[in-house]
Design a binder for these strands. Structure first.
Lengths: 218, 218
DNA sequence: TCGTGTGAAGACGTTCACAGCT
DNA sequence: AGCTGTGAACGTCTTCACACGA
C-alpha cells in the first residue's frame, strides 16, 4: 500500500538520516573541521557507523580510506542528493496556535526553506505584524500558489477542516504537505504527505516508559 | 544499536498504529457505530486491512468472523494494551514559541494526558495566565517532578540547551522525553526519547516532491 | 457468504565482517 | 595501521492467501 522511494532508489529512512547528517556536517563545518570519520559522524548523529556508511553509499563514494570524509565535500554532495540546493518556498495554512508558533520558529529558514505566505480562515490584521509574513484569507490561496509556484504546504488547521483544505491545496497544485492535524489525509498518489502527529508521538513515548520499569540495572 | 519493543513483543511501528486505530475507534464510537470490519477501520486509518488485522492480533483476538470487531470492546482492549487507561501527567520544559503553542494545543488532553506544569528559564508572570498551567523557573524542576511523580516531559528548549536540560530531567527521574529540539539527545538506555524534528520532516516532504514530477499519469 | 486470524512468502532495512585503498 | 565501501547474513515488518468460524 505504501510505496515510497520513487525514482531515486534511496530508501525513505535513509533520506531522513541524510538530512540529519547534513545538519551535523554543517555544525562540524562551522567548527572548522575539515575531515571526519564515519564513526565520529555517526556518533554525532546517534546512529551506527556501519549504517552511516551504507547511507552515504547511496549518494556516492566520497570517503578516503584510512582517513574519512571531507566535511565540506560530503555536505554539498548530500545537499545535492536531497535536492536542497535552492531555497524552497513554502506556505503555511492555518495560523492558529501551532501555525503561528511555526511561523515564528526559525528552524525552517535555517534549513533552506522560506515561508512566503500564511493563510487563515480569519486573517486578523494584528497577527500579520507579529508573524512577519503576509497573511491572507482562503480566497487568495489558489492564485497565490499558482503565481508563486509554491509546491510545499504546512497544514495546521483543525482536524475537522484538514481534509477539505488539503483538497483545495492539491487542486491548486501543491505537491507536498506537512500535516500537523491529527487526521489521515486522503490525497492523490502524486502528492506526498508527512504527518506530524503530536499526541500520537507522546502516546508512543508513554508506552515505552514503564515497560522498562524493572530494567533499572544496566 | 536501536532495540525497541522491550518486554511486550509488540513492534514499535505497531504501537504507533494502534494509537491511530484507537483514535479512529473513538470517532466511530461517537458516531454510534457498534461494529466495524478490518477493511473499514483500515481505510479510516490509512493502512492495509491485512496489516490492521496483524496489528490487532498482537493485542488479542477480538473479531467475530463474518462480522468484524465490536468497536467499544476493541477500543478498550487497545487502550489497555497501550497502557493508557489512566490519565498520565506530563511536564513541558521550554515555554517559548513552540512550547506555549503546545500548551494551548488541546490534543494532548484529548488523548489522555495532563500537562501539570511548565518550566522556563525566564518564567514570565504574564504567560502564566495565558497558558492555563502553572509556570515555574528551572530551580523548581527537580522537586516538582519528584513530588508529582511525573515520568514524561515535552522538551521545547533551544537546541543549545537541550542536552543540558535533558540531563537534568533524567537526573530528576523523567523516563520519557518528547523532544522538539533539533538535537540528538544522549540519554541512558532506560530513558525513551522520541524526536519530533520539524525541519527534518519538511526536508523529507520536500525530497519526495519533484521526484514524482514526470509521474503525473496514474 | 463474509470477514477474521495466521502460516508462509516476500520486501525491506540493518548489521557484520572483511577486502581493498591510502 | 586506519578507515571506507559492500557482499552477504540477519532480523524485522508487510503482504499474500487461505483455512476456519459465524
Amino acid at each position: 500500500m505504501e510505496s515510497e522511494r520513487e525514482k531515486t532508489g534511496i530508501p525513505k529512512k535513509t533520506i531522513y538520516r541524510l538530512s540529519l547528517y547534513h545538519r551535523c556536517l554543517s555544525k562540524l563545518c562551522e567548527n572548522g573541521l575539515e575531515t571526519v570519520s564515519s564513526s565520529a559522524l555517526a556518533k554525532a548523529a546517534g546512529v551506527g557507523a556501519s549504517q552511516l556508511r551504507r547511507d552515504i553509499s547511496h549518494v556516492g563514494q566520497f570517503g578516503t580510506r584510512g582517513l574519512g570524509y571531507q566535511v565540506e565535500e560530503l555536505r554539498i554532495a548530500i545537499r545535492e542528493a536531497l535536492g536542497r540546493e535552492h531555497l524552497q518556498p513554502v506556505i503555511l495554512v492555518g495560523a492558529g496556535n501551532l501555525g503561528c508558533a511555526l511561523l515564528r520558529y526559525g528552524g525552517f529558514q535555517k534549513e533552506g526553506f522560506e515561508v512566503v505566505g500564511a493563510f487563515d480562515a480569519v486573517p486578523e490584521a494584528v497577527l500579520q505584524k507579529e508573524i512577519g509574513v503576509p497573511l491572507y484569507g482562503p480566497e487568495k490561496l489558489d492564485s497565490f500558489i499558482a503565481q508563486k509556484g509554491v509546491k510545499l504546504a504546512i497544514l495546521c488547521v483543525p482536524a475537522e477542516n484538514a481534509q477539505e483544505v488539503a483538497n483545495d491545496l492539491v487542486l491548486s497544485g501543491i505537491q507536498g504537505i506537512l500535516n500537523f492535524s491529527p487526521t489521515v489525509l486522503q490525497v492523490p498518489d502524486k502528492v506526498t504527505v508527512n504527518n506530524v502527529d503530536l499526541a500520537l508521538e507522546l502516546e508512543n513515548v508513554s508506552f515505552f516508559i514503564g515497560k522498562d520499569d524493572e530494567e533499572s540495572n544496566a
